[in-house]
Design a protein around this nucleic acid. Structure first.
Lengths: 204, 204
DNA sequence: ATTTTGACTAATTTTTTCAATTATTCAAAT
DNA sequence: ATTTGAATAATTGAAAAAATTAGTCAAAAT
């Protein structure tokens, strides 16, 4: 029982390493099994198929990141500060898991339902996170916002889109460098700062 | 001479119709020639190759749109109004020429140098357009901006990215509808409005 | 009973080949 | 200088073959 869970976790971790480095297509179930000296069949004992394993990995790293972020965010009361913190963490996450996310990032191709679901969830949670930051700003009188949900959506669209636009401009670059992610972060911070100023209560 | 230019223009126009409707891949040189009852070889007398013709079409429609926009923009002094006008025109352009731009829009694939060049130019011009609107706002005392060029870039990145993010969410949709473009426009306007408010001079 | 495996099959991807389409050239005609 | 028909070169698409990988299962191990 406890041992079974351990095996499952081991598989998840090995899969995370492989997927995070090589992506879905360039990782085989055999390789993951070999990394652990397990038989390939064992992977199928714990996970129904490759997509499910990949989705589990995705879900795991996303959940981990959210958990950490929410914990740390709770101790920041200023919403400008909170937003900057979130941007830092967001970029750190994307930088670390860029290859894992490549499928979800590069549009075009169809994403299997299982992953689409995880990603949709993740998007909702991210909007909720931004919404909570904004709401705190409204509650403390720092901000004046008519529709907090929509405003959070606009901010997320702009952030995701900004990252995409900048990375697209770097055409021919298979793997963006740390510097390029830093550049994105810098512009995102400036944008959000101006945006928050635009939402600021006149009395402040 | 004058007749030769006319032929060139005819070819450009016929190519525009085909490319705008079917895109680069689904349009053949023979079809363009047939539309005009010219021989296919004549197209090669006026344009070195298919990519060059496509790039010329792209350049032409972009230049036309810019020209019209600049003319009309010159008579708008309020920068909020100017920005909204620009957003309207931008979306109208993308809606009209969506198929023509599909290559440039869908990332991933390599864009031939000739087109990349036209698109890079177009991007620079667009930034310049936004910069000029912002600069007017600074000059009239409506806005306070430290780095106008960078701010213009941020706005463009956010706009382009926003469009991309929203269209990506509509996965499986080959041709976005008018309504979907309107939704993009609506969110873009809200974003830019808040952003401009964030740049507004305190005295206003 | 649960967990694990090797050997097997099914599905998918990659490679190769070949026919058909399409881009491009060019010598000759206008 | 402009235009064309006829030819060649390049590209694409479909089909077949080969190779890799996903997924299954009966039996072994714990």
């Amino acid at each position: 029982m406890i041992n079974a869970d351990k095996k499952r976790t081991q598989i998840l971790e090995a899969a995370t390493r492989r997927f995070a480095h090589f992506g879905l297509a360039k990782t085989t179930m055999s390789e993951i099994a070999q990394d652990l000296s397990f038989s390939k069949a064992l992977l199928y004992y714990y996970f129904p198929d490759k997509n499910a394993l990949y989705a589990a990995v995705l879900e795991h790293v996303i959940a981990q990141s959210f958990e950490e972020m929410e914990k740390q965010l709770s101790s920041i009361s200023d919403c400008q500060q909170a937003m900057m913190f979130m941007l830092d963490k967001r970029i750190a996450f994307v930088t670390k898991y860029y290859n894992l996310l490549e499928n979800s990032i590069s549009a075009v191709q169809q994403i299997p339902d299982e992953m689409a679901c995880v990603l949709a969830d993740s998007k909702d949670k991210e909007i909720a996170l931004i919404r909570d930051i904004l709401q705190k700003g409204v509650d403390t009188g720092q901000l004046v916002i008519e529709d907090v949900q929509e405003t959070a959506e606009i901010i997320l669209f702009a952030l995701v889109g900004m990252r995409f636009s900048i990375l697209k401009d770097l055409k021919g670059v298979l793997f963006p460098t740390k510097d390029e992610f830093d550049h994105i972060l810098q512009l995102q911070k400036k944008m959000v700062t101006v945006f928050l100023k635009g939402l600021a209560s006149p009395s402040h």
